[in-house]
């Protein structure tokens, strides 16, 4: 009797541990000079001339690989942890899938040298594709192109870009003179399998209520998820990078077209008092989350 109870409890515990965690496998990227002391498990994706506003070179044996060039390399172990995901540049003369599968085609380029990067393929501009070669049984790579900080959720930052259709490339820790020059960071994570995400019909995961565009592998409608909503809580408002709706936020729920004026500004916070009402205005601040963004709440107290 005791054995049976223990067995049932064991099965229950195992089931619960599977159901309530998103399984991801090690994935990490670096944007460093070619001469950097790279870990041998990191594989080169492509090269660039600099770590700020650079074009890409896909010829790994030539241009940018010597001297002051930079490279983006990633370390991606497969779900069985028996090998590593291989990255490969291939010609893409038309819309035919040239990598193993649709999900293996992770980004597109305008050429071999001085190339610009894009999230989606456009046969008019793109001639090269970056493949992430692994079997579906080895995992699913999810790339997110948006302006959120996903590092807290174990996503690895690959690089920054100013445009998802025709982008220049910068390293993830690049600093710009003007704040909004580079809107997008490209984040990557490697899931065990699409089933481990437990996608709902509304494109959110049952495990963390966040939206995953990659649920489109199971639910076709999820290909409509705006990139700003990828990784956000279902129903939350997030800053929109859609040029058609400047300075707005989008509501991350179907039908994905509800916009409002943005709460987040580029104006420095300035607090004063009406004349003669307070000589000692003291600020106490604490961190909180507002619309899925880490913000500081300041309480200004007139302590006269």
């Amino acid at each position: 009797m005791l054995k049976k109870t223990l067995l049932i409890l064991g099965i229950l515990f195992y089931t619960l541990s599977i159901s309530y965690s998103i399984e991801s496998v090690p994935f990490n990227c670096e944007y460093q000079q070619t001469s950097y002391a790279w870990d041998t498990n990191f594989q080169t994706l492509f090269s660039t001339s600099a770590d700020l506003s650079a074009q890409a070179s896909l010829d790994l044996s030539g241009y940018y690989t010597v001297g002051g060039g930079y490279q983006i390399r990633c370390y991606a172990q497969n779900s069985q942890q028996t090998g590593f995901v291989e990255f490969e540049i291939k010609d893409k003369p038309n819309s035919n899938i040239v990598c193993g599968d649709e999900v293996n085609e992770i980004m597109y380029f305008t050429g071999e040298e001085n190339a610009r990067v894009a999230r989606d393929y456009n046969s008019a501009y793109h001639t090269k594709v970056l493949c992430a070669n692994f079997d579906k049984s080895d995992g699913v790579m999810h790339l997110v192109w948006n302006n959120q900080d996903l590092s807290v959720r174990d996503y690895a930052c690959m690089f920054k870009t100013n445009d998802i259709k025709n982008g220049l490339i910068s390293s993830c820790d690049a600093n710009y003179n003007s704040g909004d020059q580079y809107l997008y960071s490209v984040w990557g994570i490697l899931f065990d399998s699409i089933d481990s995400l437990n996608c709902r019909a509304d494109c959110s995961s049952k495990l963390d209520d966040r939206i995953y565009s990659i649920c489109s592998l199971k639910i076709k409608a999820c290909s409509d998820v705006p990139l700003d909503c990828d990784g956000s809580l279902y129903g939350s408002w997030v800053k929109s990078t859609d040029a058609r709706y400047p300075n707005t936020e989008i509501k991350c729920e179907a039908p994905w077209n509800n916009y409002r004026t943005s709460k987040f500004t580029n104006t420095s916070l300035q607090v004063t008092t009406t004349q003669g009402t307070c000589d000692n205005l003291i600020k106490i601040e604490k961190p909180f989350i507002l619309d899925d963004e880490q913000v500081k709440m300041g309480i200004y107290v007139c302590s006269d």
Binding site: R260, S268, T277, I299, Y300, C302
Partner: peptide, 28 residues
């Protein structure tokens, strides 16, 4: 007192439509 929000030193408008940038005393 007045409650405000900021991100990286920049103002976060609590309700941009009604120009509510802080909740509290109108003297602030």
């Amino acid at each position: 007192f007045c409650i405000v929000f900021e991100k990286d030193g920049k103002l976060v408008k609590i309700d941009p439509n009604s120009k509510t940038y802080g909740i509290g005393s109108e003297n602030i």
